[in-house]
Design a protein around this nucleic acid. Sequence first.
DNA 1: CGCTAGTACTCAA
DNA 2: GTACTAGCG
Length: 882
Amino acid sequence: MGIGGLLPLLKEIQKPCHVKEWAGKRVAVDSYVWLHRGAYGCAEDLALGRPTVKYVNYAMHRVRMLKHFGVTPVMVFDGGLLPSKMGTEDEREKRRAEALAKGNAFRAEGKASLAREAFVKAVDVTPAMAYQLIKASLLNALRAEGIEYVVAPYEADPQLAYLEKSGFVDAVVTEDSDLLVFGCRNVLFKLDGEGNCVSISRDDFSKCREYNLAGWSDDEFRHMAILSGCDYLDSVVGLGLKTAHRLLRKYKKPEKVIQFVRLEGNLNVPRSYLDDFRRAELTFLHQHVFDPLTKSLTHLTPIPAGTTLEDLPFIGPLLAPDFALGVAQGDIDPITKERVVDLVPSSFAATNDTPKKFDANGSRAKAPKAGTPSGGTLLSFFSRQAGSPAVVNPVKAVKAQARVTLVGSAKENKPAVTQQEEPARASKFFGAGRGSKVELQKSSTAAIVPPVMHEPDHEALSDDFEAEAALRDIELGFDLPSEAAEIDEPEEAVEERRVSPAEPAPPTHRPALCGIQEQAPDVDGGSVQSEAGGIVVPVSPPPTSEALVETPSPERQKVAISASGQSDVGVSSPADSNVAQAGWPTPELDQSPGLLSSPITPRNGFSISPPPPIVKEEAAPAPAQTTAAPFVTLSSDPIILSSDTGSCAEQATPRPPKRSPRPPKQRKSPILSAKGKLKTAPSREARSKTVAVWEDTPGPRAASGESAPKTSASKRRKQTEVIVDDDEGVSEAVRSVAASWRAKFMLQTAVKSTPRLLAPVQPPTPASPTNASRQKGPRTVAPPGKHSSATASATRLPLSTLRANTSLKRSATTSAVDENCRPRGDEDLAPAKKRRTVSALDCTVDRSLIENDVVVSSSSSPVPITNPRLLAFRFTGTVRRE
DNA sequence: CGCTAGTACTCAA
DNA sequence: GTACTAGCG
């Protein structure tokens, strides 16, 4: 919902503009908006599950519009749901289901327009739809056109902000005023099909006369937004933007404002409001984002020293590196954790949606060969003309013999990976057809993506922490700890990372996001499946340094490309690919010197080749490659990314899909893992602070497992004031925020079933027997005996089992298990076997639920999350009462 | 005057 | 997600 009324408030500084003013620049696009608008036009098809690509065409039209005006779009998609939003998502889902039923009823009665109206309300933009826009098998899609994109681990908003903040892009296109709160400097709203938009610049805030924002930092602005009500916190009823602004100007700090409002007594301020406020602020600040540079998760802003991820449960669990990468590339559905379902198999697209009358290239208009799974003959209205620069780079055809290594495949990860069984990468939806799995080694180059997270510069990092924490002091009234926090994991684990040979060197070139790897098809002479290329996960530094084109901009190092064609790290399609686009005639492109000059040359007939597999550029330095290199398996249309590290032979034989691979030893974000080295950070004088701490006192409602409204959670708690006298105070205070949230959230969501997560995935296309046979069953609660112990889809676990298992989990995490969440009375129980299953059963889950015959399903949780407390969220997502 | 809640809208190139 | 507006305090 964004911040209600924020845009009108900023009316003064809204500047009508045109995207061409951003020619030569890179602009990140909140893709959800375009997908949603595009979906409007085909709501009925989507609601009824009929394959359609209209929304893709709509979005691509916009993409081409941007390119037409010389703007390089970077498409950003929403990822997984934040834990705190799962509840609202359930409600939405319910509403959509109702609308769908209504629509069907109207349709049956022949009331077409009423039906359509209902279907519009029933439509949801799903990751599968995002995938349609991304996937390469549609020529009319991002990969095929070399558009950079990234799927955020959670929300797109912080991801967009991060891209801008870190210099990947210069502005952000969105309709969501939240972006300003996340700290974006240049936001473009209301972009229409012609390129008109309204820009709001952070720098203009001071020019706001009606509402004086002069002298306001990002923090104050954010405080105002949160106070007035935001996605993460409902406002105090009766307190809107203007009041928040007025009071903040007067009292400066949100605590004071809240105090004043309470004293005034006109408005009802929930008891937990201050906690909630802090939590909302922490969510705005530290949400997970995908860093294209390190190809790993990080935070929008580094989390404050003295706190760990466990203190920020509301920002969602840290995803395992390879999983995060899969999500970022759009291949893994961040919600279902499954490989994304291809809604529109290419065969359909090729036969049903080709706008033939606009097809200027006769050769490409031909139907694909029979059986070609990804005919790729779908030409958009705007597809390139014959002779125009193709997206495929013939030069790269040469790179046929490179090694293939995947994320998480480095030697050091091997033990963990083998222990965790094979991640369920293969899919019946994607492995089907043609039965032509091709070892990628034979067809293309893959990149080595170092499995080890980038080790931050500790000195700089410590400065960051200092600055960051100092800010936090001011905002939240906390003090910094005098020393960095203790390491939360075994020392050897940290050590291992430190000495890892796979640690990437500090990048010298800013890689692009996920983009297309242009590559010539038919390495082996015309066979359809051989076209390589595909998504490149850019690596840095580029393997070769020759012919690098570097941006003159000091703060933004853009994509570098080598003339040899070997290191176009995630380069988006060449700027000259705009040439001859129907609908958007090629402008005289102002090729900014910082942008790429690509060696790509025109090529005809590329379109009949299937899409490229996921390929990763080879990185330097290469991680230890002493173990058998795993390989990417190329199936038909989409890509099967097998990230296991088993032997090739092992991989070639599909194993029963097992889930929830335990992530390697990287249980912490890079930031966190670096904390152990921050002990030398300058101490600061500790001051006493009063911190409100909420004490959990579970009430009768919890025991009954009854659904509790928001307020009841807070009623169950009593507030106590404690004096915090040292550095512990900071992390302790944050922890208390976390604990209160946990209590509230767990209660809310644990009792709510989440049918969405439990619902079986219905493939739009029948899977081939081959793949279906090794595909796991539906993710519903399944009859016993159908699952391996690893999947343990639905297990009724007696309390005793839970106790036994939770103790195991605790032994896995060395420390920092919050007392609030620690299982009680099970200290000495022996470890149990179902490690993952059980880890999910964190003690944060209300015991009464367990005792009330809650069915626990861990099967929909293949995400390797090692932190047991974070796993609790997954648990709540799959709990349902019978 | 500020705020809330309800309604309408997004496509169709 | 937005914008607009009637109605309420």
